[in-house]
Simulated assay, not measured.
Amino acid sequence: MVVKASAHKHVSREDIDDRQVANALVSAERSGNTHRFIIQITTKGGALAVVQRGIDNVLAGMARYPAFGSAISVEIVTEDLDEIAVLNTLYSSAPIPVTPYLLPNDYRTPRVTRASRLAR
C-alpha cells in the first residue's frame, strides 16, 4: 500500500505492486529526480529493540518490494558505542546498507542544541 498526498491536502491510499515501484524509480531517474531513500533512525542509546524493529520493518518492506533494491539505505545515529557493535553484527549481511554512526556525547549543533538528527 502506498499513501499519496497532493499539494491540495488530498490523501489517498492504493495498493501497488513491485512492477509499479520499478517503473516509478525509472521514471524518477529519467526526469532527474532523486530515486534514493535514506531512512535515518536517531537514538541516544538504550532502545536497541526499538531501533531493530525499525530496521526490520524496512527490511520487510524490501522483501515485499525488491525493486527498491539499491535505492534504500538505513542510517542509525546513536551515542551508544555498544549498540554500534551489535548493529554492525546483526545487519552485516542485510540486503541493503545498514550503517550505524557514533555521535559523541558532547556533540552540539551549530545552534548549541542536542538534536542528534542534525549531526549528519
Rank of each mutant, 00 (worst) to 15 (best):
M1N: 12
V2N: 06
K4L: 09
S6L: 08
A7M: 04
A7W: 08
H8W: 09
K9Y: 08
H10M: 11
V11M: 13
V11D: 05
V11Y: 09
V11L: 14
E14A: 07
D15A: 15
D15M: 15
D18L: 10
D18T: 12
R19E: 15
V21Y: 01
V21R: 06
V21D: 06
A22M: 09
A24M: 04
L25E: 05
V26E: 11
R30N: 15
R30V: 09
S31P: 00
S31C: 08
N33R: 13
N33A: 12
T34Y: 11
T34V: 05
H35C: 03
R36P: 00
F37V: 14
F37Q: 13
I38C: 10
I39G: 00
Q40V: 11
I41F: 13
T42W: 04
T43R: 05
T43Q: 07
K44F: 04
K44I: 06
K44S: 08
A49E: 14
V50D: 06
V50A: 15
V51Q: 03
Q52T: 03
I55E: 01
N57I: 02
N57L: 09
V58L: 07
V58F: 01
V58W: 06
L59M: 05
L59S: 03
G61E: 11
G61C: 03
M62Y: 04
R64K: 08
R64Y: 04
P66H: 11
A67V: 04
S70H: 11
I72N: 01
I72Q: 01
I72L: 07
S73T: 12
I76L: 04
I76R: 03
T78P: 02
V86S: 09
N88Q: 15
T89G: 02
T89E: 14
L90S: 04
Y91D: 03
S93D: 10
S93P: 00
S93C: 00
V98D: 02
V98T: 01
V98W: 07
P100C: 08
Y101W: 10
L102T: 00
L103K: 07
P104R: 13
P104D: 14
P104T: 04
P104K: 14
N105E: 15
Y107K: 08
R108D: 05
R108M: 11
R108P: 01
T109P: 02
P110G: 13
V112S: 12
V112K: 15
T113R: 05
A115K: 13
A115I: 12
A115R: 12
A115P: 00
S116K: 10
R117K: 10
R117H: 10
L118G: 05
